Amino acid sequence: MNVFGIAGYSGSGKTTLLEKLIPVLTARGLKVSVIKHAHHGFDIDRPGKDSYRHREAGASEVLLACNDRWALMHERRTEAETTLSELLGRLSPCDLVLIEGFKQEPVPKLEVYRPENGKPPLFPERNDIVAVASDAALETALPVLPLNDMNAIADFVMARLNLKER
């Protein structure tokens, strides 16, 4: 699978960028999936619902399904954290997997950088960052893409991964 990361500090706009980038890539005929790493625990289930009750009773996996979608919840309880490679193995085949988070994984990444966030850029310290999307002028040899130009960002990602429009 072709994997490309979106990196940056919290509040930099990673999710917003993905929300705008995905439709541009899918309009070009690509099948796109996303893996998002959450730093804090999360739950897509609600107390009182049957699936919640099943998990609380000790089920290791609960799969919810309806006409429009399905979701598999896997309880790790005593297992080590799932690796990116293991998560990629659970996805259906697609043209491109965009990952948000997983900052330490050695995959090519676009850094979303906003100086007003008050944090230093990641790119000087990380050789897996291959470009930066920013609304500021930056001194770097890396390509700096306009933060709000999704066509330019899509062009870069597709060229970097040698993906063709369908």
Rank of each mutant, 00 (worst) to 15 (best):
K49Y: 10
L138I: 06
G41S: 06
E111C: 10
A80S: 15
G48K: 00
P120H: 14
N127T: 08
V32H: 10
M73D: 15
P106T: 00
E86L: 07
A141T: 15
E139Q: 06
K20T: 07
L72I: 07
H37I: 09
S51L: 07
P23S: 15
E75F: 08
L87N: 02
P115K: 14
A27R: 12
R126Q: 11
R69W: 02
R77A: 08
R28K: 08
A57E: 00
V157L: 04
R76L: 14
L17D: 11
A7R: 02
L96F: 10
P47F: 10
L87P: 02
L21T: 12
F4M: 13
G5R: 05
P93F: 03
S85R: 10
N2I: 00
R90Q: 13
Y113S: 08
A7C: 11
C66I: 01
E100S: 12
A57Q: 02
P120C: 01
G29W: 12
I22T: 15
L142K: 09
L72G: 06
R160G: 11
L122K: 12
L88T: 03
F42T: 05
T78E: 03
R166I: 14
R55S: 02
L122D: 10
G41H: 01
G41Y: 11
D128A: 13
S51M: 02
N2P: 12
M1R: 05
L96P: 13
E111V: 14
D43K: 07
G48F: 01
K36I: 12
A71M: 15
Y52S: 13
G29E: 07
P47T: 04
A136R: 06
A57D: 10
C94K: 05
G29F: 07
V3Q: 05
K109F: 03
F102S: 06
F123L: 08
A154F: 02
E75C: 02
R76G: 10
